[in-house]
Design a protein around this nucleic acid. Structure first.
Lengths: 189, 189
DNA sequence: AGCGGTGGAGAACGAGCGTTCTCCGGGCCG
DNA sequence: CGGCCCGGAGAACGCTCGTTCTCCACCGCT
């Protein structure tokens, strides 16, 4: 009955990714060994290498899954607001919530880019794709609000600056500063 | 005559730092070995370890020297403008110049923070100090223009967002987008 | 009960690299 | 000219870590 083995593989994969995400995000990719992932996940090394033939693939899977979840969480939060302009500002409210979470250590993609961007072209491409998706999402919000397209890039830069600054300082305040700037830019637009 | 030896040490130190800066910035700190620094600088390993007892100290010296130079270059560019509001916008003009330079790979401190922030508290502190100095510089420009203090944080976030985005995409455009947003915020202030 | 195969624990291997050591040549002093 | 010290080249050492291998316990089947 291979059904069971398949299920176990799926479970092991999730456990491995859960552990990898916490460790990679919290300490940096290079500071975490495959053995650390094994220890934290309970998935044996043999199985880990069956699921992810090399560490780089585990890293890619980690960024990929986090990308989907991150954008879903943001979109879910924003969708609760009705007014199109409020939705734009809600992005920054969500950032503030995120920055305040336990274990927040900045943007996983910006951090990974600093760590691996010069070495791994695949990671670099994933980071670019993630940022482009976020920017595209903002562009959609701006268009829905009937505001000029140039605003999207400006909001994007504010959000990126807030993420990087919150990551470095450990404070949530950058989200409020960015929100206030966004409010002024929306009003001016 | 120890005079000569002292001079040579100073020269060797500069050569080592020149090579370290190019390599660390271009490829990331962890991807560069001490032997690479030796090869690129012509300074022998023995001498390298006399000047910098461990790699971490070389990294610190690299960030320290680059910090001074970076802020001097920015301040020098901005000081050429007379009008206080123009000086604020000149910051973003300088960013555009910087982004367009050969070998530009984003902000050295943001990248280093992503790579080492979770591991080395000394590097993390240096990054925070650099960013705080930059923010303080912007606050001075804002005060000189008689604009409200809250503007400084907003301009800072725009600049950080532009640096991180230019680093990831390799384009200079974020500087112009940030400049336009800054112009609107200055006008609104 | 015997047995084949699956999977886990952890040793083993090999590469990379930070750091130190050894050896040697070349200039300076008596 | 002979001994001495400074510094360079690069081998060596020890550790980490990605990846693979070995061995063994367990589980289902006949």
């Amino acid at each position: 009955m291979p059904r069971m083995a398949v299920m176990d593989s799926a479970v092991a994969r999730e456990q491995a990714l859960d552990a990898a995400e916490e460790l990679f995000y919290g300490r940096g990719v290079q500071a975490v060994g495959m053995d650390d992932v094994r220890g934290a996940s309970g998935v044996s090394l043999k199985r880990l290498y069956q699921l992810f033939p090399a560490k780089e693939q585990l890293v890619e899977a980690y960024l990929e899954r986090r990308d989907v979840r991150w954008r879903d969480r943001l979109a879910g939060f924003v969708a609760r607001r009705e007014d199109p302009r409020e939705r734009i500002l809600a992005v920054f409210d969500w950032l503030e919530e995120w920055f305040g979470e336990d274990g927040f250590r900045g943007c996983a993609w910006i951090n990974s880019y600093g760590e691996l961007g010069a070495t791994s072209s695949r990671v670099a491409a994933q980071v670019r794709a993630h940022k482009q998706a976020f920017r595209g999402y903002l562009a959609g919000l701006v268009a829905d609000a009937g505001l000029p397209g140039t605003l999207a890039g400006q909001l994007f830069l504010l959000a990126e600056g807030a993420m990087v600054t919150a990551g470095i300082t450990g404070q949530t305040e950058p989200a409020r500063e960015a929100r206030e700037a966004a409010r002024l830019l929306v009003r001016a637009g």
